[in-house]
C-alpha cells in the first residue's frame, strides 16, 4: 500500500507582498540550461534557481517538505525535470491553486502526489498557512491539517486515474 498521509514543513511560494506567485513556468522551476541532465539525483540542486527570491530553495528544502504554490503552476514546457527536481529534493507533495495541463499529467504519470487547492490564494494572504508550518495531508480525502492549531482545509482529493497510477508507482507500471 502506498502512503496516503504525509506530515511535513510547508513552503509557501510567495513573492513580494507575501502573495502567492501565479504562473510559475517550467523555466523558473528547472531552467532550460540544465535540460541535458537525465539523472534525477542531479536535478535537485537546480530547483527554482531561476525564480526570484527562491534561488536558494534547494539548500533550504528538506526531505518530507510540502510545497504550496499559486495558479497555473508549471505552465510552459513539457519537461519532466520540473517535476523530478522536487522528487530529488525529497519534497513529498505539491499543492497548488491549479497546475499547467502538461505539468499535471507529468506529475500524475510519474506517481508524484499533487493536489489542487482552489482557496490557497485567500488562505495564504490571510496568513493562515505560512512557511515552515507543520501540516498533515491526507491524499485520499484532500484534507490538510495544521498540526499546531488543528485547523483543517479542504483540497481536491485524488481522481480515480491519479489514484490508480499513484498506487502502481507510475503510468509505466500500469
Amino acid at each position: 500500500m502506498k502512503e496516503y498521509t504525509f506530515s511535513g514543513r510547508t513552503w509557501v511560494i510567495t513573492g513580494k507582498n507575501n502573495e502567492i506567485i501565479p504562473d510559475i513556468d517550467t523555466d523558473q522551476i528547472f531552467h532550460n540550461a540544465y535540460l541535458h541532465i537525465t539523472e534525477i539525483e542531479k536535478m535537485g540542486q537546480y530547483t527554482f534557481d531561476n525564480l526570484e527570491g527562491w534561488k536558494d530553495f534547494s539548500t533550504k528544502a528538506k526531505p518530507g517538505d510540502i510545497m504550496i504554490a499559486g495558479s497555473n503552476f508549471g505552465s510552459g514546457s513539457s519537461r519532466q525535470q520540473a517535476v523530478d527536481c522536487f522528487r530529488a529534493l525529497g519534497v513529498k507533495v505539491i499543492i497548488a491553486v491549479s497546475f499547467g495541463a502538461i505539468y499535471k499529467r507529468n506529475a500524475i504519470n510519474s506517481g508524484f502526489p499533487i493536489l489542487m487547492f482552489a482557496d490557497a490564494e485567500r488562505i495564504i494572504s490571510e496568513k493562515k498557512i505560512k512557511n515552515l508550518d507543520k501540516v498533515k495531508i491526507d491524499l485520499s480525502t484532500g484534507k490538510l491539517t495544521k498540526v499546531e492549531s488543528g485547523e483543517t482545509f479542504s483540497l481536491m482529493p485524488f481522481s480515480k486515474v491519479q489514484k490508480d497510477i499513484y498506487d502502481s508507482g507510475s503510468l509505466l507500471n500500469i
Binding site: S78, I102, R105, N106, N109, S110, S170, L171
Partner: peptide, 10 residues
C-alpha cells in the same frame, strides 16, 4: 498534445 517523457514512453 505535448507530454512528458513518462507519458510518451507509455
Amino acid at each position: 498534445q505535448g507530454m512528458g517523457d513518462v507519458d510518451i514512453a507509455f
